[in-house]
Write a protein that binds this DNA or RNA. Structure first.
Lengths: 328, 328
DNA sequence: GTGAAAGCGCTAACAA
DNA sequence: TTGTTAGCGCTTTCAC
């Protein structure tokens, strides 16, 4: 900026004003400065501007990962949510800073905010540490979580209606005459727990008591789908249907069942969750519960901006719908 | 920092030194300051620190998107590359700033660097605008591209060995006695063009001339796979194999062929490209060309850091391998 | 319509 | 071992 000022024979104040299109500066001077800036490929230093203006157009998007499994983030649903968030944020003129945190230390997600790098944080996935999030909220960190609404929650969540989702999935299977429905999912995660609750509700409505033998507590590990099917086989338990708490899990399980010579949907009808892009192209095309990423992303961003504004943002429960395809 | 200084009864310099664990400051003073900082939930303002230090630990990861189709970024390969990059960068202590640019204006990718937000840029995908990238390089922007190595290239690329990849895929199909191999891909993209070149080489080695009727110039659009299969049907052209330039495309095409009653691999053997996670769980499990994301991500980051260091970084061609599964 | 000066939060040379 | 001071690149009040 000093260079431009010198070349234009004005002060840096004038350059600053010209670059911000201030009407205070003479039209002609302004044009000269803008031309100069362009020809020098000059761009304003955003860090310095932010510092001076005490503002910031950056939002941190943080993904908790299970350190124990050291797994790369790979669930297409989360990845695609990240894409949608980047879109929604840039639509609103915000930059997106991506980072991961250990799922056991989700409170570390506030780092970009604490360090003044971001005006707020969007957490994709809530993990098991409700308490850490509550503390973070108490500390005044503006953040929004993609996840389930929980009792005594001091922070804002945006999430699908997991109970209804679980119910819809199970009802679909029941409607097809299936009665022995395996449930695959890690119910220590609030979202999955709610889906399981919906599942049990639907069973109850049909007078069926949930059979613990049919519930497999897989975590979201690489080989989880295959392991779950193996576990069911080991238990020697009979099942004619399966509700998997993610499409990825469902696909892996179907793959494993196929290796056992079981046909989907003839032998086992399967419903997944998330409606990732590939679900429709899978064989058989996967019946699943839709969670619209772009709507979710916009809701997350909107809620965060409200928080940043100092107002309080209510948690949002987005409607879910059954996407009926061939697998069930 | 001023608050802490006041409370600790020292100057901000001392606080600054204490926070950076400088040995210059008295052990006891340092502990007092660090305790104070912790109890106040104080974190250094990175923007100010960067400004003062003229440094920066942020790298921009930019994804070109086809504005015409306004499609959400959805190819799992790119998304998963983004994940691997975020991992590789944070391993090296860098933050990741994500943004998109119009594929027709890839030179806009330099914005985060120009604005001092990032020390360099990693571009996932090269697009069609070699010239814009060359100009960007001439301007001195430190950036690395995931893509194909081209003649007269002033910038650094890291990419798979696409020609070999194309050759391996086609040889696999030829080895199974297939002779009428459809090629699906947008050959205006350098990477795809190179894969096509490898394809033609393999055909030539078997004395087969490429049949233009078998080449379908799909772009990476949502319905591209289905459209391509429809197009082949419209042309009334016979084929007993298919080489798709991405796994996503392959899966969509297989889905469409199945709807036509054609069996994979019995009627049509299919080879994809990328080896995305779901390829192994697809039905039939997809034979494909592996492009290791984590290795690629590390290579991209390493190359960028060399550039940022002011040195020149050679382009890298990573080995590709055939992942043999059931689809071919 | 323009410039001088102060200050955003931080660090480092220099002095004590 | 610590403090004083200047300055990173920018914006804005105040004065002219």
């Amino acid at each position: 900026m000093a260079d431009i000022a010198r070349l234009a024979g004005v002060s840096t104040s004038t350059v600053s004003r010209a670059l911000s299109h201030s009407p205070l500066v003479n039209q002609e001077t302004r044009d000269r400065i803008l031309d100069l800036a362009r020809s020098l490929n000059y761009t304003i230093n955003i860090g310095a501007q932010n510092l001076r203006l005490q503002q910031n157009r950056t939002v941190a998007v943080v993904i908790p990962i299970d350190q124990s499994s050291r797994q790369q983030l790979s669930d297409p649903f989360f990845l695609s949510m990240l894409g949608s968030l980047a879109d929604a944020l840039s639509e609103q003129g915000f930059d997106t800073l991506v980072s991961r945190v250990d799922a056991d230390r989700v409170d570390a997600a506030s780092a970009p905010f604490d360090g003044g790098r971001a005006i707020g944080v969007i957490l994709i996935g809530q993990g098991r540490h409700h308490d850490q999030l509550n503390k973070m909220a108490a500390r005044g960190v503006p953040f929004v979580v993609w996840g389930a609404q929980l009792p005594q929650q001091l922070y804002t969540t945006v999430g699908g209606d997991n109970v209804t989702g679980g119910r819809l999935a199970t009802e679909r299977l029941l409607a097809q005459g299936r009665r022995r429905i395996a449930f695959l999912g890690d119910t220590t995660l609030p979202e999955v727990e709610q889906r399981y609750r919906g599942h049990v509700q639907a069973l109850a409505a049909h007078g069926i008591a949930p059979d613990p033998q049919l519930q497999v507590a897989v975590s979201f590990l690489p080989e989880s789908g295959g392991q779950a099917v193996a576990e069911l086989a080991r238990r020697g338990v009979d099942y004619d249907a399966m509700f998997a708490s993610s499409d990825l899990l469902a696909m892996k399980a179907i793959h494993a069942m196929r290796a056992q010579g079981r046909d989907v949907p003839a032998d086992v009808a399967v419903v997944g969750y998330d409606d990732i892009e590939l679900s429709g192209y899978f064989h058989p095309p996967l019946t699943t519960i839709g969670q619209p990423r772009d709507v979710a992303a916009r809701a997350l961003v909107d809620a965060l901006l409200v928080l940043v504004d100092g107002r309080s943002a209510p948690s949002v429960k987005l409607p879910t719908e059954l996407i009926a395809r061939a697998s069930a």
